[in-house]
Amino acid sequence: MPKFMTRNEEIILLTILKLKGNAYGVNIRKQIYKDIGDKWSFASIYQPLDNLVRKQFVRRIKGDPTARRGGKSKFYYEVTPDGKRGLQKLKKAHEQVWSGILDISLENGK
């Protein structure tokens, strides 16, 4: 993978990891709300999800239909080894880039 994933993809991938096998659309959205405090629209969840699927960072698994969803199946997401590797790479890059930057608080930074 020559390119890094986008920030949204990163957030979603981490959320899926955190949800441990219970990651489907609604849950992912709720978890993001808990972590970040923003209510994302479904469109902005599905788009990075589709990209992740295409990049084979996550796998899509069809679940059972539930009455709550009008008899429609859930689709769970699971992070693939590729996805984990991508995350590691990204994290390493993050640390490299942030190292050396000591203080970015607004008061002193001027």
């Binding site: 659309g25 609604v26 629209s41 469109a43 969803r69 009008g70 429609k72």
Partner: peptide, 30 residues
């Protein structure tokens, strides 16, 4: 199936929480 299911699930929750009107507005926005 996935999208419609997810939306419907969240919609149902919203209806319970804040009433059908706000839920509908939210749904259409989505």
């Amino acid at each position: 199936l996935e999208r419609s299911g997810d939306l419907e699930e969240t919609y149902a929750e919203l209806v319970e929480e804040s009433g059908p009107f706000r839920a509908k507005v939210w749904l259409w926005f989505q």
